[in-house]
Structure formats: C-alpha cells, structure tokens
Amino acid sequence: MDRIDFRQHAVHSLEEIREKVGTPHEAVVKKSISMIDEQARSYIAMSPMMFLATSNREGQCDVSPRGDGPGFAYVANEKQLIIPDRPGNRRVDSLQNILSNPHVGLLFLIPGMEEVLRVNGRAAVIKDHPVLEKLALKDKAPALGIVVEVEECFIHCPRALKSSGIWDQGSWPSKEERPSSMDIFHAHLRINGYPLE
C-alpha cells in the first residue's frame, strides 16, 4: 500500500491552526483550574473508568484504560490523586513512561454522561506506602500506585461522546459484528513471527 504524502499540506504554526478554527471563548480558557475542587472530586468519586496518557523521554506516547468500581481513583487532597496499578499483562508501558517523563493526562468518564473530566499533571510511581491500603480491592492493596500532582483540571464539552453515540445501546454493533479481540491478537502475533499452536 502506497503511503500518502501530506508534506505540502502540513500545518507548521499555531497561527495557521487559529486561522482555521478561531480562538476559544474566554470562559473555555478560564474553566481550567489547578486543583481538584469539590465538583471534580464528586465526578471522580462516580467514575469507574479513566484513560491514562503518558509518553517516554523520546515522546513516544501511550494511552492505557484504567478502571474498577466508581471512585477507584483516590483523591487524597485538592492537589493529589492516586491511581491503583492492578495486576495485568505486565507490560507496564505507563509505569515505564512515567519513570522517564512524569507528565500525564487523565480522562475520567461516568457511564451515560457525555462530558468527561480532564486532569493533567506530574506523576510518580509509589510502593509500600500506607495510602495504598485505601486502594485495596477485595482486601488486597495494590503493589504499586500512581500519584498525580494535579496541575490542571477541567470539564470537557460533550461533543465527541454525543456525536459518537457511545452510550446509545441501540447504535452498538451486535456481538457477531464486533471485531474479535482474539483474532486481532493472533494476527499481530503472526506479523511478529510468534509461533501459534
């Protein structure tokens, strides 16, 4: 498949972007705060899922879904929240990235709600701290946690979730129509030459 050459159409300045999209309303700029207030705390307490965006020192990015029950992320105070690192596939992409570049972005969701809560800040990976007991699941505290020092927090408009119809079950593809995660997994293993039995 031939790659498309976009070089002649690439944007190289913020001025070019502003020429196309305009400038934000003052209220959109001023809605960003540098802490977790009571409204944001309430949102996080109801959120069973979030996406964690990280990148390494070289700028290679990753986004990882995180979730348990509502309020799985613990708000310690207005400047700090802690995310449990539950057992998974052991790739630890997010944790490796945080070790080389602490800047993270979080996107919290509440099922049925089209506005999302965005939190940006600096993260650190912690172990053996008593606060991890507050993140216990079935009486088992996580071995590791991610502490985020909050630098920015704001509610994001509903346009993307509303346009996608993500919460409208009537628009969901049937189970038979959905891509098979196992087929995708096996196809990618074959591309990398991993033998399948």
Rank of each mutant, 00 (worst) to 15 (best):
S181C: 01
D139M: 12
L95D: 01
Q8Y: 08
P130W: 00
S171I: 15
G112M: 10
V21N: 09
R122F: 12
R7W: 02
E26W: 13
C153W: 00
M50G: 07
N89A: 04
R122Y: 10
S164P: 04
I110P: 07
H188R: 15
Q169M: 11
M35C: 09
V148C: 05
K30N: 10
S163I: 08
C157L: 02
G193E: 05
Q96H: 14
V29E: 00
P158Y: 09
M49K: 07
Q96M: 09
E152R: 13
G170H: 05
G59Y: 08
N77Q: 12
A40R: 01
M50W: 08
S13E: 13
L137D: 05
L189T: 11
G67P: 12
P65E: 04
G145I: 05
S174K: 11
G170P: 07
L117D: 01
I44N: 03
N56V: 12
A76C: 07
Y74S: 07
M1Y: 04
Q39E: 15
L132P: 05
V75S: 02
E78C: 11
L14E: 06
K134D: 10
I4C: 14
F72W: 07
D68L: 10
V147L: 12
L99C: 10
P195Y: 00
I126A: 05
W172M: 15
G121W: 01
D93Y: 03
A160Q: 06
N77H: 05
E16G: 14
V11G: 09
P179F: 03
I146C: 06
D5V: 13
E151L: 15
G22W: 15
